[in-house]
């Protein structure tokens, strides 16, 4: 049975420098629907527009044209303030280079989204420790990013992405900076979160091998979706 659509994009166009001579269209009308609890990958070469699409999905940016419904809410018409709340509550980001704040300990980094969600300090600490425990990092809670390995940092970053229990985890090349062994460890965490917590996970990558691990693979090239393949259903486009 098909679940409800978490992401519903119609005719998404993104242009930069609108109205100027160097106007640039990156996305040429993307239609994309992602249902609750799906684990999908978006694959594309660099320059294909996948990062722009990711920014759009992650509510970091608004489309120039088209509609984007996230859990039924129209993102394209929201104010900056509302977008901040969406990012805080409904999306968890995991970046290639971890994006942890260097002078803060692991637990303090995990607390950041909780802090912007106005959780009181004590509850914040409890929740952050819980999350670190989830990714097996609770014994390193007071270490700063430069005292941790790449794999450990990425686990802290995943814990942070999970902070406000978002519906969607958006991972941009999460294993790009890791060796294959630690990369697999990180991927295992995503699989576990998908399996156990039924998160909708969107993995952005250029690696076909990594994309094969997901249920559905969307291929993007030159700002258009050129392939959408279900692992157990064959081609749909």
């Amino acid at each position: 049975m098909q679940g409800k659509n978490v992401i519903d994009m119609h005719g998404i166009v993104k242009r930069y420098y609108v109205g100027q001579p160097n106007e640039l269209e990156i996305l040429h009308g993307i239609d994309l629907a992602v249902t609750e609890g799906e684990f999908i990958s978006i694959v594309g070469e660099s320059g294909s527009g996948k990062s722009t699409l990711m920014n759009m999905i992650g509510a970091l940016d608004r489309p120039t044209e088209g509609t984007y419904l996230l859990n039924g809410q129209d993102i394209s018409k929201m104010t900056d303030e509302q977008l901040s709340d969406i990012r805080n509550q409904q999306i968890g980001f995991v970046f290639q280079n971890f994006c942890l704040i260097p002078r803060m300990s692991a637990v303090r980094n995990v607390e950041i989204p909780l802090m912007y969600a106005n959780l009181p300090a004590k509850k914040r600490r409890e929740r952050a420790m819980e999350l670190l425990d989830l990714v097996g990092m609770s014994d390193r809670a007071n270490h700063k990013p430069n005292e941790l390995s790449g794999g450990q940092n990425q686990r802290v970053a995943i814990a942070r992405a999970m902070a406000n229990d978002p519906e969607i985890l958006l991972a941009d090349e999460p294993t790009g900076a890791l060796d294959s062994k630690t990369g697999h460890l990180v991927m295992d965490i995503f699989h576990r979160l998908h399996r156990e917590q039924h998160k909708t996970i969107i993995l952005i990558t250029h690696s076909q091998e990594l994309a094969q691990e997901t249920q559905r693979m969307i291929t993007i090239s030159d700002g258009m979706i050129i392939g959408d393949r279900q692992k157990t259903g064959g081609e749909t486009v």
């Binding site: 994006c99 950041i112 912007y116 942070r160």
Partner: peptide, 16 residues
């Protein structure tokens, strides 16, 4: 700058 970007991605509002 990067820290500001991270904070904003995590839900920090302009006023924060």
């Amino acid at each position: 700058t990067r820290e500001i970007g991270i904070r904003k991605a995590m839900g920090a509002k302009n006023r924060n």
